[in-house]
């Protein structure tokens, strides 16, 4: 398999995260949950990165750390988040507010509950424009209607004054999308865009993300538990486990040459990929993800890993580069 030289990033990446650690101090500081525990990656302009993981893997916490919207008790303990070369972790709160919604936008998991039920949708799309670009009055209204049209809402003038409960799920997705891209952000983070959605609605949503990207050339981070989303949408993939990247690389690296046992296991547990009704057992990963407040020594996946040996259980594996864009945090990555 000869690949074209992909992803040799020459220009400055849009986003570069270096050894990010975010801990949540729970139970009055007696329990430290290592939600993000040494995450590094970089995202080139116009590219789509999938951050894949199960619940508790730290994928959502990583995105919230980038935006500095941390849950209660959470603190970024170490690392850098370089956005356009500047470290977001060093910014003041008001500087961060000027970045959110303007340069980095985010779409939350469920568009149905992302809008304030008491305000008209037009107003909710208008807010970032008023805050960040100082638009008002007729200019603002025209700009919002333009945006609503751009995200594929038919008759945007008549939709402007409607309330969220008057719209379907598909429309709300688009409204939320319009609010997110209103100020022309360089980076858009989509958190779990497919959770609990029906297949056709889910597909529409992914189409919308692609459209937004095509329209504005923004870089996209998609947080998901679904490998199918990554296969459908992403250029690069990070597989997270216990707050770290178990493996990262191009989408082909991950699907065709998975080097980390966790990635390999995830790919083989996917149901429905054989002839239907064959009724054989699926491959599984035994056990449960580790407790992030009491991580085992060594590799966090070792207790569930079929290949783990004594070294895995005592020494934490570093990220081992298999080629310039593909790495895996496994002592045996290069044996694969």
């Amino acid at each position: 398999m000869v690949e074209p030289a992909v992803n040799v990033v020459v220009e400055t990446p849009v986003l570069e995260v270096r050894d990010l650690r975010m801990f949540i101090h729970a139970d009055r500081g007696t329990r430290i949950v290592r939600a993000v525990n040494g995450l590094s990656f970089s995202l080139g302009a116009g590219r789509t990165m999938g951050i894949i993981g199960e619940s508790g893997s730290g994928k959502s916490m990583a995105s919230l750390s980038i935006l500095r919207l941390l849950p209660r008790g959470a603190r970024v303990e170490a690392g850098e988040v370089l956005f356009g070369g500047e470290n977001l972790l060093k910014k003041s709160d008001s500087e961060m507010r000027r970045i959110r919604g303007r340069h980095i936008a985010m779409i939350l998991q469920d568009p149905m509950v992302s809008l304030d039920p008491l305000f008209r949708v037009g107003e909710q799309v208008a807010e970032p424009l008023r805050t960040h670009q100082g638009l008002s009055g007729e200019t603002l209204r025209r700009r919002v209607i333009e945006l609503l049209g751009a995200v594929g809402i038919p008759a945007p003038e008549s939709r402007f004054d409607q309330y969220p409960h008057q719209m379907s799920g598909g429309m709300l997705q688009r409204i939320v999308g319009a609010a997110a891209i209103s100020c022309g952000p360089e980076l858009l983070i989509a958190d779990e865009p497919t959770t609990a959605l029906d297949p056709t609605v889910q597909a529409q949503y992914l189409d919308l993300l692609e459209e937004l990207q095509d329209r504005t050339g923004l870089s996209l981070i998609v947080i998901t538990h679904d490998l199918g989303v990554a296969a459908r949408l992403c250029d690069d993939v990070i597989v997270m486990y216990a707050g770290r990247a178990a493996e990262r690389g191009s989408v082909r690296d991950i699907f065709e040459r998975p080097a980390h046992p966790y990635t390999q296991a995830l790919l083989s547990t996917l149901p429905g990929r054989r002839a239907p009704g064959e009724h054989k057992r699926l491959k599984t990963i035994d056990g449960q993800p580790p407790d992030l407040a009491a991580l085992p020594p060594g590799c966090p996946f070792a207790p569930r890993c079929p290949r783990a040996d004594d070294r895995c259980r005592t020494e934490t594996p570093p990220e081992i580069a298999l080629d310039p864009t593909h790495m895996a945090a496994c002592w045996y990555a290069s044996d694969a």
Partner: peptide, 22 residues
């Protein structure tokens, strides 16, 4: 704690707007 308040923060709105308006 509602999702729509989180989305208001994501949009970069000032905290006083989030609290008093929404």
């Amino acid at each position: 704690d509602a999702e729509y308040v989180k989305f208001l923060r994501v949009k970069g709105l000032a905290e006083r707007l989030i609290v008093w308006k929404h």
